[in-house]
Amino acid sequence: MLIWILLGAGLGYAGARVLLGYPPAHGFRILARREVAFLTAAADAIYPDGAGLPSGPEARVAERLDAYLEIVPARMRRLMRLLFFLVEHATAVFPAPAPRGRRRFSSLSAEQRTAALDAWRTSRLFPRRLVFASLRALLTNAYVADPGVLRGLGLTPWAIDTPVCEADLLYPPIGQLPAAIRHAATSPPSDGTPLDPAAPRHPAYAEARP
């Protein structure tokens, strides 16, 4: 009987730890709110405020990852979500520094999160370092994709006038019929004039006007 009580209590605790107490998250198509909470916390630990660049949450890392997860194959999506789950709850096995270092990752203090991730990063065990590298890669992809970050780095793409070549008369945009081909003739090809680093950049990366 005691075993059943302990088992029930354990399952109850696990269920509560995994599911309860996460703040609501709106507008996400793939990520659950527990994943949004985790990613926001991890992004803040890896990319905190400072250095003249937006923080991870300011760069909308969770939103960008949600969009990314939507386009990757289902098998990869499952692996990524498993990764989020693993790091969120691995504090039960690899606790962050006290106090209450075994709470789930997103419930830790900022200092504890930093310490927890640093332990993954510097572990002697390659699989732990691999987990950190994978998580950081996903967060970095999302973070550096932010136009504000790229503007801060001065690395936004150029505005480029694309010549029309023979192939552009053959292929419609993906998912459309040939009737969607919008060119009727080729234009002169690139003459190889080097781009000027001071030349205008792509409008999609321009600062939003108030």
Partner: peptide
């Protein structure tokens, strides 16, 4: 990670 990583990014 953290401030060190951001500083390195700023050096890109």
């Amino acid at each position: 990670m953290g401030p060190t990583l951001k500083q390195r990014l700023a050096e890109l």
